[in-house]
Design a protein around this nucleic acid. Structure first.
Ligand code: ZN
Ligand code: ZN
Ligand code: ZN
Ligand code: ZN
Lengths: 162, 162
DNA sequence: TTTGATATGTTATAATATATCAATACGGAG
DNA sequence: CTCCGTATTGATATATTATAACATATCAAA
């Protein structure tokens, strides 16, 4: 139902995602420049959200002397084109798991380990959209985020309680 | 289906909400102090979200010499006790329309006039919760927000397009 | 009336995000 | 190829949102 918490071949996960983004950029003549590509790689490296300043710190560690606009511009590009999403609850950004399909993303965010899973079956998102439209509201953007404990952090909490 | 966009007796709306909060505070021995009460009144005054610094500005206009922690502490109290909600998408706060029932709130936020409606039928919220639990995720908090155009701002956009 | 807990006052600063403008790189038209 | 308009980057400054820290005040119960 979701992606991010299950065990999977993450190397392949990254490769597939990059390939889809590259293809999409080629088709739409979008320029996946050095900083945009590197920021996307950082977001893809783990199924976790990174804040803009986390990204800046990583770039700095790689010798990049990058100021805040560098991160925000790259993130704007990635978000605008659907390659990443912003998690409003935590002011952080995560790579999209389905970066060329139009969708209403929704997320589960672990408060303990910061793991993020993007839900794949957006029945609730469509239901929200339908309910809003029934109320005469024209949706342009949805924010659907759940914060709590991922499966493995629930286990960890139970361990320490003993 | 929602509250905020429809015409209604808003004076009564405010009075009812304050009464419910007062009752709840009395029952739970919560202290609805001067600043907490005034911030809640400001949030209730319109079905719009106010940022912490909007609130500080209003308090200042009333002669309050209030520093940021004053607003954030009052908002924390109101949010923690379910009298207000934070809209993560716009970093702003809105009074709850159902302030003594436990619920998973969801919102429609107009990008044009900043009107906010809290949805009353949370079928989509429950569906989200169910989907997350099916994935083994333990939800502690949900953020469900739609941003777009409220009914009256849709009309206004159509006017100007002519 | 002491006491412990909760709330407020006050100052400073952290964390997140954007405005602005100059310099550069890119990519198509000629 | 080379010129031109546009998109992107570099660099500095600043805006916006939120919290840390610690002293003081208030409350309510023992
Ligand atoms: Zn993966
Ligand atoms: Zn976790
Ligand atoms: Zn009302
Ligand atoms: Zn509106």
């Amino acid at each position: 139902m979701a992606s991010g918490f299950e065990a999977h071949d993450h190397t392949d996960c990254i490769r597939t995602a990059m390939a889809r983004v590259e293809k999409h950029c080629a088709e739409k003549s979008l320029r996946l420049t050095k900083s945009r590509r590197r920021v996307l790689e950082l977001l893809l490296s783990e199924h976790k959200a990174l804040g803009a300043y986390d990204i800046l710190a990583q770039l700095a560690a790689e010798g990049w002397n990058a100021q805040p606009p560098v991160a925000y511009r790259a993130l704007d590009f990635l978000v605008k084109n659907g390659f990443a999403h912003k998690l409003e609850r935590v002011n952080a950004y995560v790579a999209c798991i389905n970066p060329d399909a139009d969708h209403l993303p929704s997320f589960m965010i672990c408060r303990d380990c910061d793991a993020v899973a993007e839900a794949r079956s957006p029945a609730h998102a469509r239901a929200f959209k339908a309910a809003a439209e029934a109320a005469g509201f024209e949706i342009e953007k949805t924010v659907l985020e759940a914060q709590g404990l991922c499966p493995s952090c629930q286990s960890a909490e139970n361990e320490t309680q003993r």
